[in-house]
Amino acid sequence: MEEIKKVWPKWEIVEKLGEGGFGEVYKAKREILGETTWSAIKIVHIPHSTSEIKEMKTSGLTEDSIKDY
Rank of each mutant, 00 (worst) to 15 (best):
M1V: 08
M1T: 08
M1N: 13
E2C: 08
E2H: 08
E3N: 12
E3V: 12
I4M: 07
K5W: 02
K5I: 03
K6S: 14
V7M: 10
W8R: 10
W8P: 02
W8C: 09
P9V: 14
P9G: 11
K10R: 14
W11D: 11
W11R: 07
E12C: 08
E12Y: 03
I13A: 06
E15Q: 11
K16C: 07
K16M: 10
L17N: 09
G18V: 09
G18L: 05
G18F: 02
G18N: 06
E19M: 08
E19A: 10
G20A: 07
G21E: 07
F22Q: 06
F22I: 04
F22P: 01
G23A: 00
G23D: 08
G23T: 02
E24M: 04
E24C: 04
E24Y: 03
V25M: 06
Y26D: 04
Y26Q: 05
K27V: 01
K27I: 04
K29M: 15
K29S: 14
R30L: 14
E31M: 13
I32T: 15
I32Y: 02
L33G: 09
L33F: 07
L33C: 07
L33D: 14
G34Q: 12
G34P: 14
G34I: 12
T36K: 12
T37A: 08
T37V: 14
T37E: 13
T37K: 15
T37H: 14
W38K: 14
W38S: 10
W38V: 06
S39D: 11
S39R: 07
S39G: 14
A40G: 13
A40C: 15
I41A: 06
I41K: 06
I43K: 15
I43L: 13
V44Y: 06
V44Q: 04
H45L: 11
H45C: 05
H45V: 07
I46Q: 09
I46T: 14
I46K: 11
P47E: 12
P47C: 08
P47S: 12
P47Q: 13
H48I: 01
S49D: 11
T50R: 05
T50M: 03
T50C: 03
T50H: 03
T50W: 05
S51Q: 07
S51C: 00
S51E: 10
S51M: 08
E52S: 11
I53P: 10
I53Q: 04
I53H: 05
E55L: 12
E55M: 10
E55F: 11
E55D: 10
E55K: 15
M56E: 02
M56G: 01
T58C: 00
T58A: 13
T58G: 00
T58S: 11
S59H: 08
S59W: 03
S59P: 00
G60A: 08
G60F: 00
G60N: 03
G60E: 04
L61D: 00
L61Y: 03
L61N: 05
D64S: 09
D64V: 11
D64Y: 02
S65L: 02
S65P: 00
I66Q: 07
I66K: 06
K67A: 02
K67E: 02
K67D: 04
Y69H: 09
Y69L: 04
